[in-house]
Amino acid sequence: MPSMEYDDSKPSWADQVEEEGDEGTLPAAKETIKGNIKTITDYKIDEDDGKKYKIVRTFKIETRKASKAVARRKNWKKFGNSEFDAPGPNVATTTVSDDVFMTFISSKEDLNAQDQDEDPMNKLKGQKIVSCRICKGDHWTTRCPYKDTLGPMQKELAEQLGLSTADKDKPAGSAEPEPAQPAQSKTGKYVPPSLRDGGTRRGESMQPNRRGESDDNATIRVTNLSEDTRETDLQELFRPFGSISRIYLAKDKNTGQSKGFAFISFHRREDAARAIAGVSGFGYDHLILNVEWAKPSNN
């Protein structure tokens, strides 16, 4: 029957699909030698992603002349752990590494200079990392050679100093009830925040309207600006009235275009007043500007 013959010569497509679907089977490794080039084609399934890989390795076969003894040794049978290795290098033990080059050194100074740059520790060499509290030397305080002699002396000195400054301050009766403690703050001892410089002063508020009252009072609000207005335009427009400390132009976050209003802070309130008088109702970019005092912001 003709169909039987056909089956023999070519496997049916169904068989092929079956073979491909079966993950356990891989095409056999092939080895071809063409001239002095040997090509080995391997197939392997990666353990991690289960994909099939085809590995092609190309070798150049070299024939070298060698002495008889060396040639004889080249034909020795492998032994020990390599007993069952195939002829030729085994990939498990022998691999070709990446290209490396010998870097030639023409002048020694160059190389050393480069070396020093590369060494991050060298940068630290000039700096003092550790400073002794007793003698200001380059070592830990506990390792100070003058620990026993200088240490107690300094303590005494500090105590005396502390006493004398306190004595001076008290009779003076300064307006600020701030106990001065220069001796302590300089020796690097821990000082609780309540005793630190300015510890008794009232803390500063985060409220912006407390910060600079004069600033806020010299700020004007400009509205009805055109969308194309830039900060530089505003600077040009308001500079003639006096020195400007700050310009804030409200801009759209996304497009960066002006939202049509701005705040200008002058150093002096008079300048601001003149600016209001001068620019309010001024035609700018086909729009009539509206300028007025900025209201103090509520946070």
Binding site: A69, V70, K74, K78, F79, S82, T94
Partner: peptide, 28 residues
């Protein structure tokens, strides 16, 4: 002759290699 290279390490085996292509001849 330099055709073989012996290497020993802090593990227990001694390896011998063909120096020309890095093929391992065997271990002691």
């Amino acid at each position: 002759e330099g055709d073989l290279l012996f290497s020993v390490a802090k593990d227990t085996v001694t390896n011998v290699w063909y120096s020309v292509n890095g093929e391992r001849l065997g271990t002691y």
